[in-house]
Design a protein around this nucleic acid. Structure first.
Length: 488
RNA sequence: GGUACCGUGGCCGAGUGGCUAGGCGGAGGUCUGCAAAACCUUAUACAGCGGUUCGAAUCCGCUCGGUACCUCCA
């Protein structure tokens, strides 16, 4: 399959032409959420970023298997707090079974992702459902000599690994620096080196979630699940691995190490990382406690928000920045996104009303090419959106008689909007007309009465009708062809 | 401290050597009973200093400022 798609590969720090390992198949693994809390704006970014990748690869004709895990085996809160993990802590606080916490937040995550109009992954494996695979992976690493046991727990021997491979190839770190800079934390006596990471942890008595293994009753280490599940569903080497930049080190670095230690070769061809969303210039994150959940955006129920912002506003806001740039959140920026999106859909609908001309004064075909170029350039969605705005402007000009389009060009513009705005960017109109017969009839009646009033110059009545409808978010526009309405 | 990235007009944000990015907001105008939308015109920019070049927001150096990772975090 031929294409000109270029993807920025974190591994090489360059844009590379995308050549899948086994075309037309593409395997993509994306780090999903740890389900111990509601998804916030930060979670929306990888969800949407890799939804775009998924949609575009499929559009290009690839058969994509998109795997996104659910982390339901809690990572430790921190090393000093060994023995308690995030999900367990949440369960204790809410007096629930850990799996109740997991189920509750998994469902809510799915609902949020659905609201954002992201396509569901092909496979959504859970860590707890792949304990056996993780144990098997540890056995391989152990057999190859890159792990050591210490009182029932197993650790990855980074120093030894680094002699045969390169620990730090993804994140640009060197082991000597890690030696100097890794913080000394309590509870690490079992490790040979501070930067060694756990493959298996023996659980202490108060730990609820644990499984049997050849070494101890315990639970798998932080980075293991992605290595095990990625290999299981996508093979020992697959095409794309995605996630947030904050996972680059140590998570993804360690995944590479685990795979090499087990199989002798790298697990992933293209590593993709989305950047962070910032609030007041600072990363929005759980630990900083400055996050706003998606539900809070959708309801407006947060002190930093003046009102609700819809899922599509959030999605469009995110797509207006390139995925590798930080994106600064503000209500002002969200309002701009909301208005802009509305403008695009207005233009999209306007296409149905344009009068065709014999000749076109605009080269529509060129826009299509430019949109593809932008997508091929490492998924440059802000550029695609800019071209759609340019087109929207042209369509309005056509409507005003300043530009002309043939029937064929109007149709291909429709296709273009439908392809890029709806199919690829995944935008949908939340405020479209309710096209039921009843509503049509009622609105026609009301607008006719209003027209009567206007004809009699009874503007008090006509304005009253408009103001009352506005309370239901119905907007009246008086055009040359008569009054039109839509939802605000 | 180490590593990496960034600093674009009121706000958000593209752009990697020469050609108007775009959206929102502001100002003026057209249309309109008014409004809305749309259209037309317009202002506001590339952190600072130096260098390379015929030419730099874009390359190089320095300075200042900010962020991320190095501990769980999308």
């Amino acid at each position: 399959m031929k294409n000109n798609l270029k993807i920025y590969n974190t591994l090489s720090r360059k844009k590379e032409v995308f050549h899948p390992i086994n075309p037309p198949h593409v395997g993509m693994y994306v780090c999903g959420p740890t389900v111990y809390g509601d998804a916030h704006l930060g979670h929306a970014r990888p969800g949407i970023t890799f939804d775009i990748v998924f949609r575009y690869l499929r559009h290009l004709g690839y058969k994509v298997r998109y795997v996104r895990n659910i982390t339901d085996v809690g990572h430790l809160v921190n090393d000093a707090d060994a023995g308690e993990d995030k999900i367990q802590k949440k369960a204790r606080l809410e007096q629930l079974e850990p799996m109740e916490v997991v189920k509750f937040y998994t469902d809510r995550y799915h609902e949020n992702m659905h609201q954002l109009n992201t396509l569901p992954p092909s496979i959504e494996p859970t860590a707890s459902g792949h304990i056996i695979e993780q144990i098997e992976l540890i056995k391989k690493i152990l057999k190859n000599g890159y792990a050591y046991e210490s009182d029932g727990s197993l650790y990855f021997d980074v120093e030894k690994y680094n002699k045969a491979f390169h620990y730090g190839k993804l994140s640009g770190r060197r082991i000597e620096e890690l030696m100097q800079n890794t913080r000394e934390l309590a509870g690490q006596e079992e490790k040979h080196n501070a930067f060694d990471f756990a493959l298996w942890k023996k659980s202490d008595p108060k730990h609820i979630m644990h499984w049997p293994s050849p070494w101890s009753e315990g639970y798998p280490g932080w980075h293991l699940e992605c290595s095990a599940m990625g290999a299981k569903y996508l093979g020992e080497t697959f095409d794309i691995h995605g996630g947030g930049m904050d996972l680059l080190f140590p998570h993804h670095e360690s995944e590479i190490a685990q795979a090499n230690a087990a199989t002798g070769h790298d697990p992933v061809k293209y590593w993709m990382h989305n950047n962070m969303i910032t609030i007041n210039g600072q990363k929005m994150g759980k630990s900083l406690n400055n996050f706003i959940t998606l539900d809070e955006f959708f309801t407006g129920n947060h002190k930093a928000l003046d009102r609700a912002y819809s899922p599509m506003t959030i999605r469009f806001f995110i797509l207006q920045a390139h995925y590798r740039s930080t994106l600064d959140f503000s209500t002002e920026a969200l309002k701009a996104a909301e208005k802009g999106l509305h403008k695009l859909f207005d233009a999209f609908y306007l296409l149905n009303e344009l009068k065709p001309s014999k000749k076109s004064s605009v080269d529509v075909k060129a826009f299509e090419e430019k949109c593809y170029e932008a997508m091929n350039d490492d998924f440059n969605t802000p550029m695609v959106i800019a071209y759609l705005f340019d087109l929207a402007h042209i369509l309005n000009q056509v409507s005003n008689g300043q530009e002309n389009l043939t029937k064929a060009d109007i149709d291909s513009t429709k296709t273009l909007f439908s392809t890029f705005l709806v199919d690829l960017l995944g935008m949908k109109d939340e405020k479209g007309k309710d096209n039921s017969e009843l509503v049509d009839y009622l609105m026609d009646t009301i607008l006719n009465i209003r027209q009567e009033a206007k004809t009699k110059k009874d503007y008090a009545t006509s304005d009253l009708i408009r103001d009352e409808l506005a309370k239901m978010d119905i907007q009246i526009k008086d055009t040359k062809e008569g009054a039109k309405w839509n939802f605000k």
